[in-house]
Nucleic acid binder design. Structure first.
Lengths: 108, 108
DNA sequence: TTTATATTTTGAAAATTTTCAAAATGTCGT
DNA sequence: ACGACATTTTGAAAATTTTCAAAATATAAA
């Protein structure tokens, strides 16, 4: 599947977002991640695999354990894609400027 | 379902992303949107409904037509959520700074 | 009110996702 | 090689999503 769908689909699940959230505080192995949830290990393993396919996490083996880390590059790409929705948006034909771009519009 | 999952799930489908992309250039009615895709009108109506539930678009009636518009507030919230993954991330224990934040890190 | 146009809702099939239990794989310590 | 532990893969059930055709709804025009 295309990279962008994989990323947004991965982010569309609360369990997977919580996994990412926990990884922000530091790397975790699969067991540590699994024990934070009610669902089984196999299910977590599946979620981890989706996150990996999306490029949102990387994993490395350390002895018996598989250690998962956030991989921020893909987050940035998703971020950029979202930002284009503001920066490149042609001015709509609505009455009264709809350019809700924050304090400074596109290009300052 | 929670707002955040709705938004990311909505963005996880290529058809829905293309709908959003087309709406960037200006408002469109349901028929105009549907005719840009191979799939049936009922299916597009369903996608539009999901986008609406996610808050990514709004619709208004104009005569017989239903006109769809981008609603950027929710984009910004998704954007913010993603940004927190950089700004609030505790420095990882990896060797050599992993703060891949672009030219200027968080807080300049 | 009848007819036409635009869109949504309904009901159902096909496809995908989530989950679990059990089996398989990989690594470590003996 | 063997047993214990950590994790993934497999096979299958349950739940959700995507799609379509047909019916229903809403507005407009005659």
């Amino acid at each position: 599947m295309e990279a962008r769908s994989l990323v947004f689909k991965a982010l569309g699940d609360p369990t997977r977002r919580e996994i990412l959230d926990r990884l922000r505080e530091g790397d975790l192995n699969a067991g540590e991640i699994a024990s934070a949830f009610e669902i089984g290990k196999a299910s977590i393993s599946h979620h981890l695999n989706l996150l990996k396919q999306a490029g949102l996490v990387k994993s490395r083996r350390q002895g018996q354990q598989q250690i998962y880390t956030l991989h921020t590059t893909v987050f940035q790409e998703a971020l950029q894609w979202l930002m284009v929705f503001f920066e490149n948006q042609t001015t709509p034909p609505n009455p009264k400027g709809s350019g809700k771009l924050g304090e400074n519009g596109p290009r300052g």
